[in-house]
Design a protein around this nucleic acid. Structure first.
Lengths: 196, 196
DNA sequence: AAATTATAAATGAACGTTCATTCTTTTTGG
DNA sequence: CCAAAAAGAATGAACGTTCATTTATAATTT
């Protein structure tokens, strides 16, 4: 690693420290109570430094949203390939997403907050949705093969993936905990909802 | 209606005008961009007047949350009685909630925003949850009768009611529209997820 | 290799604005 | 004419953002 790489790494560190700090503060106190001053302090930089890396607060939030969304998708399709049988593929993706939501709680909670408030620009939100295409394709395939009900992708998502957001939230509030056995039963519920 | 009632009505009008204005602004721009000055203006009162009816902004939001939550529950259990057969009762409640989420979009979107951000005090949130008891009792009954899977109430909620929140959001963003036929298919998905 | 200059990164203080809330005055209904 | 309700102006605090400097790094010259 030469001297230029070190420099780049340092910059990346600061940027990701800022994104991390934002994630934490927005999760803990909400967008309305996550001022730039606190974000800077938590990231260990001066307030003005934020503006070297991001145009403004909205840009910071948008960037964080896209970054987290990308990490989510990366995780979702780990070990998946579109040559797999539909049910097997769905199972892999579903468990990947469950893992993500239940382990990377902060990231998942942030996404859920973004998706239910007007804090993200609509165009940015749309950009974040593209990553999910392989799952939509899988569902199409399943419908063609007569394995999955001929429902809209929105209904399919609502009844298989979206419920995990709720369970994650309940777990974070210590109202509920998912173990492996319960997770299997939960997958079964998702599958029963959409299978033909 | 005597003269005192008129006065009370007027007070109620102002209070509900404030709650309505808050609902609108929080929905359209988020909590972080719904200042008291704008709320007052939209409600047609002076900023200071808000403080005659609410202790502070948080109190205003909390009150709104509880009021909307109550209206939601009222709607949810319309025409339901616990002497009904489990499936019939569940069907009535499910369609009631679907109606609410798809017609009273503003109220439902507000609740979804509250439930996914730290903008509501945790104790207030817990208070708002109590209203749902009849549904939880119904599920208990269903489990006893062997009609419904022996899953936690959180999973049951996640796979039957919660998905409607997602469909509502997609509908509000004009990405999707539910007609009567699709709604029936959607109910079927909910039921398939939890029925034994 | 040391010394000097140029460039980039980072800072803390300061800006104008907006916020939630309060204070004082005016209006209103009985 | 009085108490309650409402208004509007005023408040300090806090906000996002910018600015003039300082500090650190790189390039160039001795």
């Amino acid at each position: 690693m030469n001297i230029h790489m070190i420099k780049k790494e340092k910059i990346k560190d600061k940027k990701s420290a800022l994104l991390n700090a934002t994630l934490t503060l927005v999760n803990d106190h909400g967008f309305h109570d996550a001022p730039m001053s606190k974000i800077a302090k938590l990231a260990g930089v001066a307030p003005a430094t934020i503006y070297l890396y991001f145009k403004n607060k909205q840009d910071l939030i948008n960037n964080l949203y896209l970054e987290v969304k990308a990490s989510f998708s990366d995780c979702a399709f780990k070990g998946y390939h579109n040559t797999m049988p539909v049910k097997k593929g769905f199972e892999i993706i579903w468990y990947n997403i469950a893992d993500y939501k239940l382990n990377l709680v902060n990231e998942a909670a942030f996404l859920s907050q973004c998706d239910n408030t007007p804090m993200i620009d609509e165009e940015i939100r749309k950009e974040g949705l593209k990553h999910l295409q392989p799952l939509l394709d899988l569902w199409d395939q399943g419908k063609k093969e007569g394995i999955i009900k001929p429902l809209s992708i929105f209904v399919l998502y609502a009844y298989t993936i979206y419920p995990l957001t709720f369970l994650m939230a309940m777990q974070e509030r210590n109202l509920y905990t998912l173990n492996t056995k319960v997770l299997d039963e939960t997958f079964q519920a998702a599958w029963d909802a959409i299978k033909l």
